[in-house]
């Protein structure tokens, strides 16, 4: 079943891709092939593959249970939030929080997680910023 849905989404994607290729504005100074042809070939092969997946599906993979799935989505959200807040609160604070969260969710105890999170953030800061001189996001506190 998973593969059938996947194939259907793939078909949709191919159609969307082909449509977006059709509306590419061609400039009057174009070569013989133009900017549309190759994307259209891609869309066609994509459609054939998706159709094959749809018609000849593999056995369904083992999907995570709902709590595991929520866990996964939560970690994605944390990473996106991390990216958004990085320039605002600075590298060390953001990284300490994000890595503490991740290691906690992977099974470290709560107090240990805080220690691990801070050590990862400070460790990366020392090695990559102080030692290698890489520029990391600066927060209001200067680190």
């Amino acid at each position: 079943m998973s593969d059938r849905i996947f194939g259907a989404v793939g078909l949709l994607l191919a159609a969307l891709f082909a449509y977006s290729a059709m509306i590419i504005e061609e400039s009057f100074l174009s070569d013989a092939v133009g900017p549309k042809a190759f994307p259209l070939i891609i869309a066609a092969i994509l459609a054939v593959c998706s159709l094959t997946i749809l018609l000849k599906p593999d056995a369904a993979p083992k999907w995570p249970t709902l709590p595991r799935f929520v866990e996964l989505v939560a970690s994605i959200v944390v990473m996106v939030l991390y990216a958004e807040f990085l320039p605002i609160v600075g590298f060390v604070i953001a990284t300490a929080l994000a890595s503490a969260y991740l290691t906690w969710r992977l099974g470290t105890s709560a107090i240990q997680s805080v220690v691990v999170g801070i050590s990862i953030a400070v460790g990366i800061y020392i090695i990559f910023h102080l030692l290698f001189g890489l520029s990391l996001a600066k927060g209001p506190l200067g680190f």
Binding site: T95, A98, L102, T103, T108, A121, I124, F128
Partner: peptide, 15 residues
């Protein structure tokens, strides 16, 4: 253990 390693992997990728 991976529970410590994996956050490091993620953070180094971000950096």
């Amino acid at each position: 253990p991976p529970r410590i390693l994996m956050p490091i992997v993620a953070m180094v990728s971000f950096v």
